[in-house]
Amino acid sequence: MTDVLDLDLRPVIAEQPDPVLFATVSGAHLYGFPSRDSDVDLRGVHLLPAAALVGLREPDETRSRMWVRDGVEMDLVTHDLRKFVRLMLRRNGYVLEQLLSPLVVHTTDTHRELAALAPGTLTSHHAHHYRGFARTQWRLFERTGELKPLLYTFRVLLTGIHLMRSGEVQPHLPTLAAQVDEAPDRLPELIAAKAQREHGDAGVDHARVRADVERLHGVLDEAQTASGLPDTPVVYDALHDLVVRARLEG
């Protein structure tokens, strides 16, 4: 299994055409169920020069690259700062998980400022993000029967429930399994199985896991209704000022 903490990923950041404000590891390593052959998902933010945004040509606000480095499959996606912040303000839990990932490859003062402002972007409507993601992964599981989309289904439902209750973005499934009382008892067993293989049949009773998923959807609905999170972000102006300042400073 690839231990991302043992990889020197700094050269990857240095190769990028524009300054990188942060890069973290996302995907299965962040979620707590990497396999022996899992790729390394790098996510982050780059900073375009001001000239790239004021002319006629459309800039590359999102850049993606996949390649193999030292025998490890790498997947790098970065957004320009302005686009990333706009995603933060659109109840997108995925980008917040990337921003707050503890698996940090590269950081800057701007990264730390963004992370400090992240709680102010959280709303009760983030439940919709996790609910929709869960339904997509569940349909994939029903079509393939594979373990990976099943774990993703459980992961996003539990992340959404925990977020609605605590105001904390927690994408790590083993942690969620211990913190959310309604988590299925079999999760540690399924996580251990995923460590052995990236793809393959889940080997579960479909009726049983369907009942678990339906139950967790109900728990998420209840948690959203009872949530103390606001309806809209409260840090729009602060994020605007941060984007302007970072751009002008280059």
Rank of each mutant, 00 (worst) to 15 (best):
D37P: 07
D39A: 04
V45Q: 07
L48E: 10
L48W: 11
P49A: 01
A50L: 14
A52V: 06
L53R: 12
L53D: 05
V54D: 00
V54R: 11
V54L: 06
L56I: 01
L56F: 08
L56Q: 01
L56T: 03
L56G: 00
P59K: 10
D60Q: 14
D60G: 07
E61A: 15
E61P: 05
T62E: 07
T62Y: 13
T62Q: 10
R63N: 04
S64P: 03
S64R: 15
S64I: 11
R65Y: 05
R65A: 02
M66F: 13
M66A: 08
M66N: 14
W67S: 08
W67R: 13
W67K: 10
W67Q: 09
V68K: 08
R69Q: 13
R69S: 13
D70P: 06
G71D: 13
G71P: 06
V72F: 01
V72D: 10
V72M: 03
E73Y: 03
M74V: 04
D75R: 00
L76E: 02
L76H: 14
V77C: 08
T78C: 10
H79D: 09
R82L: 11
K83E: 02
F84G: 07
R86P: 12
R86V: 08
L87G: 04
M88I: 08
M88G: 00
L89Q: 08
R90M: 03
R90L: 05
R90Y: 06
R91K: 11
R91T: 11
R91I: 02
R91M: 12
Y94G: 06
V95S: 02
E97G: 14
L99K: 00
L100I: 06
L100H: 01
P102Y: 07
L103N: 05
L103E: 14
V104W: 03
V104H: 00
H106E: 07
H106F: 05
T110S: 11
H111E: 01
E113T: 02
A115M: 05
A116Y: 00
L117H: 08
L117D: 11
L117I: 04
G120M: 12
